[in-house]
Amino acid sequence: MVNQAISPLLQIVDLCVSVEDQQILKGVNLTVNAGEVHAIMGPNGSGKSTLANSLAGRPEYSVVSGEVLYRGEDLLALEPEDRARRGLFLAFQYPMELPGVRAWQFLKAAVDAKRQHNGEEEMSAREFDQFLKDKVSQVDIDPELSRRNVNEGFSGGEKKRNEILQMAMLEPDLALLDETDSGLDIDALRIVSEGVNKLRNPSNAVVLVTHYQRILNYITPDFVHVLVDGRIVRSGGADLAHELEEKGYDWIREMVS
C-alpha cells in the first residue's frame, strides 16, 4: 500500500524514451516531492521537452524502458486524460488552437472531467462562471481571452498566458511547464511567473523546463538539473542556474565529456 504522505510525488527511474526510432532520453532519474520547484535546464535538443511530453503521455513519444511513479502509481500505464485527471498538467511549449471551440466550453469539460474522477458533481454553469472569473483575476489575464475560442488567433504570449489560466482552473498537483518562458516579452514573463507563484503551495510541485535562466529570476527553484544528451548530468540549487547563465552550456558539456 502506498502512503501518499511519505512517497514522493514523482519518481522517475532510468527513463529512456525515443521519438520516431531515435532515442532522446537515455536514462533520466529524478525525484520530485510536494512543495518543490525543479528547473530542468539544458541546451536545444537535450531532451527537455521530450521529458515533459512523455510524462504527459504524448502518443508519439514511446517509452523504451524505465519507470515513472506518480504518487506511487505507474504513470506510464495511464492514458493522457487519466494522468490529467489525477492532477498532472503540462503547459505546452506550443499550445494548440482549437478552432470554433469556446474557451468556456473547453475549460468546463476539463474541470468537470477532473471533478467526475474525484467523485464530485459537475459544476453548474453559474458556479463555473464564478470559478472562471475568480481564476482569471487570480492569474491576472485579460478576461477577453476566456471569452474567445481556445487559442484561436492568439499571439504567442496570449497562448502562454492561457496555459497558465488553464493550469489555475485545473489546480494540478504536478505542473510541467515546457518552455513557457520562450517567446515572452518581459511583461508577459512577469505575468506568467506571478501566475505560477500564486498557484504554488506545499502540496503541489512544479517542474519547469527552460533553456534560459531568465524565468528563474521570477520563479525561484529549489533544485536545478542540467539535461545534456538525454541524461541529467548535474543537479544543484538555484545557484547552478546562475553559473550556467554565466558560463554557458559548453561549460557543462566540457565537464561531462
Binding site: A56, G57, R58, P59, E79, P80, E81, R83, A84, R85, F89, L90, F92, P95, M96, E97, L98, P99, G100, V101, Q105, F106, A109, A110, A113, K114, H117, N149, Q166, L170
Partner: peptide, 23 residues
C-alpha cells in the same frame, strides 16, 4: 490537437466530438 485536449482531462471521444461540433 487531440492530445492537447486529452492532456486537459478530456477523453478522446469527448475531445473529438467537441472538435467536430466546433467544425
Amino acid at each position: 490537437t487531440l492530445f492537447y485536449m486529452r492532456s486537459r482531462g478530456l477523453d478522446a471521444e469527448t475531445a473529438s466530438r467537441i472538435l467536430i461540433h466546433a467544425f
